[in-house]
Design a protein around this nucleic acid. Structure first.
Length: 181
DNA sequence: CGTAAGATGAAG
DNA sequence: TTCATCTTACGG
């Protein structure tokens, strides 16, 4: 369980998005690791019309402009939360959205957090709920708290590149990356 | 399958 | 004030 260096996020957002696939995401609670393998992400950069940061810094999106490795959790549709990690140098409004995990550790807790649903962590809001990630972690640094990313557990054989989900602007950009094991 | 749930920010 | 949004769970 080696945590990755925050320098990992201090580079081109698309490179970070592709290379983070296969790493583990864990939330630590009561000395137990809850989480799994990241298998789907999307990239958002400042010049991208689909990004929250496109029109500049606001109260909500400010973490995107913070130092690389900053956690950006935003509320969507008034009831769910999505987890992003800031990329590129401080001052650049870029991030990757973690969209899906393959659950590996403490799956019983994830099931409990997800209540009746059998779909545990295969969506951005589902994984936040499944791991029990508190929105208060917004603006804090990953790996400096109880949410962290550890070294690659598996190397994806084939990364699939497609258009992103749920956006209407800049639809042509193929900045969603995922793999099947 | 369609739709409601309702925080946030931009536009009118 | 109204509209759109990086989604999900529910009912028919």
């Amino acid at each position: 369980m080696i945590k990755i260096d925050l320098e990992f996020f201090n580079k081109n957002t698309l490179d970070v998005a592709k290379s983070i696939l296969g790493h583990n995401l864990f939330f630590k609670k009561n000395n137990r690791l809850i989480g799994g393998i990241i298998n789907e992400v999307e990239a958002y950069i400042q010049e991208d019309q689909a990004s929250h940061s496109y029109k500049g810094k606001t109260k909500r999106n400010a973490p995107m402009f913070s130092s690389p490795g900053t956690i950006y959790i935003y509320q969507i549709y008034g009831l769910y939360h999505c987890l992003n990690i800031t990329t590129e140098q401080e001052g650049r409004g870029c991030a990757i959205l973690i969209r899906s995990l393959i659950p590996t550790n403490n799956i019983e807790i994830i099931k409990k957090n997800r209540k009746k649903s059998t779909q545990l962590t295969n969506g951005p809001a589902k994984l936040v709920q499944g791991l029990g990630i508190p929105p208060e972690l917004n603006r804090t640094l990953i790996n400096k708290n109880n949410l962290f990313i550890t070294q690659k557990k598996i190397v994806p054989k084939k990364i699939i590149t497609t258009t992103r989900i749920g956006i209407s602007k800049d639809k042509n950009k193929k900045w969603r990356f995922y793999f099947n094991c």
